[in-house]
Every structure is written in C-alpha cells, then in structure tokens.
Design a protein around this nucleic acid. Structure first.
Lengths: 137, 137
DNA sequence: TATTGTCTTAAAGTATACTTTAAGGATTAA
DNA sequence: TTAATCCTTAAAGTATACTTTAAGACAATA
C-alpha cells in the first residue's frame, strides 16, 4: 500500500509540515515521489515513523535520532553501536518512568490534600501535612 | 534554617539563574532579602521549589504552574479550582507513564533485535521481525 | 475554463524555557 | 587596600522543535 502525505498525517497524527521537516532533517529515509513530485509513503516508511515517534516521545533529541538513523543506513558494521544506543536509551526511559512515578506520589499527596481541604472548606488545618522533602538538606 | 541562592542551587540542582527566573516569572513567592539585597531562602521556599520541580518535571508548562501558584495565593476560595487542576494533572501524568511504558516495549523489542543481530553479525535474517504497528492503517 | 484544493521548496517566524551578558555593588582573604 | 568572589538587575541571546509564509505547480470538479 502507498500513502500520500495527508494520509500519513492522519494515520500518525503528525502534521504534514512535521513529516517534511523530519525528512529534510534526515530522520526519515528519502521518500519516493510520484511523477508530479509528490511524496509517496510505503508501509516501511510508516514503520520508520513509528520508530522515530517512539524515540522522540521517550525524550531522544532530533540530533540523536538523526545519528541513529544514519548508523542504520551504514549497515551491519554499526550494529554494535546501535545496540549500545538502544540499551542506553532503554535505561534512560526506565529512569524517566521511575522519576515520573516518584513525582506521581507527590501529586497524589496533593490530590488527597485538596480532597480534605475542599471537604473542610479551608486548608488552614492541613498546612501541617507536609510531603517529605525530595532534597537532601 | 536559611539558605543563600548558591546553597539552594546546590541542594535542588537548579542553577541560580533558573531560581531567579522562576521568581521573576512568579513561580515562587517573593523571596526575602538580607540587608544588602541578596536572596534568603527558607525551608518553606524549598518546599515550594519541590512542588514546582514536581509539576515541571511531569510536564506542566511554566504558564500553568504560574496559574496554580497564583491560585494558591488567593486562598481558600480557589481550593476547588486547585483540586481540579491537581486531578487533571494527575491524570495527565498517569497517561504519560502509560505511554512511556508502551514505548518501552518497542524499545525492548529493539534491544532484543540488536542482541540477536550482533550475535549473528548481520541483521539480514532479522528484518522480518516486525514490531506491531502502533497506527491504525 | 475557472476555481478549489492539493502538492512542492526555501526561508523566515514562533513557542518554550531558560542562559548569558553587562554593569555595578557588597563581602571576605591576603 | 586590592583582588577575588559573591550578589544584584534588565535585556539580549540561545537551543530545540517545529510551524508558517510565500510563491508557484498540478489535478479534479463546477
């Protein structure tokens, strides 16, 4: 199956302008063109977009994604380096999730706090409730 | 206990410039000054910084944090609105974590892929291994 | 055939969140 | 007392990741 830029935009949720931007930044391989010069996306292109989206949404910079894509283009001789990049990123994402979960505890504390404060109509009594400091003082 | 801006910077990991920026943007209440005009931070200020850091690191914009801080300053009449903000943000963070976990599966797939490819010395045989598309085609 | 809607490019513009610079004042160590 | 090191402000600069604009080409519809 082949897709126009508009279809890909709808499928992926990325604006056409972003899809063009990713291509000029070389986050995507060169996309084929039809006789009048319009982009024609394949299933493989969609798979690439999924990978890029995954890396981007997990916090990898455009610059690093570009580097990863460039390594892929070089073939088997970059396998080890790509593996290291993926493992490092995996670790980053795990840390990111752990950090968010820690912060979520703080937010849950606040949710309980406001639940109680709204019931009481005032937070005067509640200000003593303190969430343990995340800093070493 | 009282702290200089440099001490707070060390404790929180935020550069002094960022602490000043947060204050001018009104993410922090006005910080006390010593006789020569230098900032003097209290434990309460550190608690605020922890809240701001929590909101910021979980993806709340400076603009929205500012709004939340302003509501806090208005007192009990904004309790309900603050509660709604906290609950909405809690939901956002939960979604964010779920999304990261989903992406982590994709990254784990890639890690396995590169593990196998490095062992084989080539990815030729592995290109058939496809991670299920996250898009509805 | 004219209009509408899509596509193209390159370049300039925008949003967010800081960060740096410049110029000067106060405190401490030699 | 002089140099180093902190502090201050306001304003300009930076980085990242797009997004918009402008100008023009192509294809389908009224």
């Amino acid at each position: 199956m082949h897709y126009t830029i508009k279809e890909v935009s709808k499928i992926t949720g990325l604006p056409s302008s972003t899809l063009r931007y990713y291509e000029t930044e070389q986050l995507l391989p060169k996309i084929q063109r039809n006789p009048s010069g319009a982009r024609v996306y394949t299933e493989d292109d969609l798979e690439w977009i999924a990978v890029i989206t995954c890396l981007k949404d997990t916090g990898m910079s455009i610059k690093d994604i570009k580097k990863f894509v460039a390594l892929c283009a070089l073939g088997d001789c970059t396998l080890e380096e790509r593996k290291q990049m993926v493992l490092a990123h995996k670790k980053n994402v795990e840390l990111k999730i752990a950090k968010l979960q820690k912060h979520l505890e703080h937010i849950n504390f606040k949710a309980d706090y406001y639940e109680a404060a709204c019931k009481a109509g005032t937070e005067a009594e509640l200000k003593k409730r303190k969430y343990p400091s995340p800093f070493k003082l």
